[in-house]
Write a protein that binds this DNA or RNA. Structure first.
Lengths: 241, 241
DNA sequence: TAGTGGTCTAGACCACTTG
DNA sequence: AAGTGGTCTAGACCACTAA
């Protein structure tokens, strides 16, 4: 772990523990570089991480202000998986493995991913049950060229844990899309919809660090169980002149 | 404008113009620092911006790979306003100003924003019409302590343009939430809902650069007209030990 | 082994805020 | 005027990739 990441984690925990309170200023960059015995640029890299995570706001000539973080936010953003969320939020829930078999990819998904439709994938369907009701249906397609085998018991637990810890692969980035669509026959079959006509659909195409595409995911949420929160910084509009 | 931002824009336009093609490597950081006559760290700051915008993926020992950007994505992310989106996407649309008056804030919003309910705001309602149908209803509340006057003709154009260009204020960051909720009486009154029972609601609390809260926004979208796209990089899950 | 990106330094100058 | 963050440098060493 690099020094600036350690410092980021250290300051983060100081903010979470209220050692540094919301509305107050952090020590100046010079003070922090003395405290941690590193150069100022290294401190600045740590502060950049805090800035991007929404912990602080910097102001030239003034200092770094600690922001008021609302802890109960639901950060789907930043590629965090369902299992990780569950662990961090203590949701009383259960996963049902409905399907886990090898198939060739469907026409529709092949065109979305821009790959040949002879591509072989693990096709996975999992239902997420909360308080006895199935409120999320996850459909995953993982390229067998990257993930040769996918045991049922791993699929039922955390996919990302299996991929990263067991397979040693490193996930890089994803493009995600959120839309609302009419519920399908399949949605009605597996989910507890109470007569809802629509579901929220999030589609992602996930790539490894070396840019290899390896997963397509469709996550279908019951309307009342979907919530997405993000922290956004202003970026000046593009100049389309 | 700082040097690294100039370089970011320059390389960005080279990627968009296909001078650097998707799948290829950018010149190395050393080459780029010669080309632009700056130090390597300055090049690295420019590349960090490209990385965060989803233009490139870096790999140690290898280089910086240009990613395949899909241009028709709809970047609500990053605090871009409706008017700016419209400009950049050529949507055939029109804005109706339904309300623009000064009020004291409602109980509900006061508690959401954590301010006193005697706070005075400009209460603003605007309908966004596309191809003759009202598909978005924007409700804005701007603190009069920050924005003393808000002319109708400015409200009808771009709020952000007025705030940034006319008032000289700098917008800093926002916390945004996306949920699906039952349509209200007001939604049915102003929007063309075709019998939909729900709408997508995005709520934001927007702060200035100096952390002053100045705006609360609720944007209500017809289900079939809502789409949100984001580019996300993997961040290891928090350690809640 | 040569070339790449990842990290870090010690110092410099600038722009901005506050007294 | 003193202190803050914003930018930039020239050089160093490390970890990784590919030939």
């Amino acid at each position: 772990m690099s020094r600036f990441q350690d410092i980021f984690l250290d300051i983060e925990s100081d903010i979470l523990n209220q050692q540094y309170k919301a509305g107050e200023l952090l020590p100046s960059e010079n003070k922090l570089s003395e405290k941690y015995n590193v150069s100022r640029e290294t401190i600045r890299k740590a502060l950049t991480l805090l800035l991007e995570s929404g912990y602080i706001q910097k102001k030239q000539g003034k200092g770094s202000i600690v922001l008021d973080i609302k802890r109960f936010d639901f950060p789907i953003s930043g590629l965090t998986s369902y299992k990780e969320l569950q662990d961090s939020q203590n949701i009383n829930s259960e996963t049902l493995l409905i399907k886990n078999q090898i198939e060739t990819i469907s026409e529709q998904i092949a065109s979305f991913l821009n790959v040949s439709k002879e591509t072989e994938v693990h096709a996975l369907i999992r239902a997420r049950k909360v308080d006895g009701e199935t409120v999320i249906l996850d459909k995953d397609y993982l390229l067998t060229s990257v993930i040769p085998v996918l045991p049922d018991n791993e699929a039922k637990k955390s996919l990302y844990n299996f991929i990263e810890k067991e397979m040693g692969l490193i996930i890089g980035y994803a493009r995600k899309e959120f839309v609302v669509e009419p519920a399908t026959q399949e949605d009605r079959e597996y989910m507890t919809l109470h007569g809802d006509t629509h579901v929220v659909v999030t589609r992602s195409e996930v790539h490894l660090e070396d840019t290899t595409l390896f997963q397509y995911t469709e996550s279908r949420h019951r309307l009342d169980k979907f919530r997405f929160v993000e922290f956004a910084r202003r970026r000046p509009p593009m100049d389309y002149s």
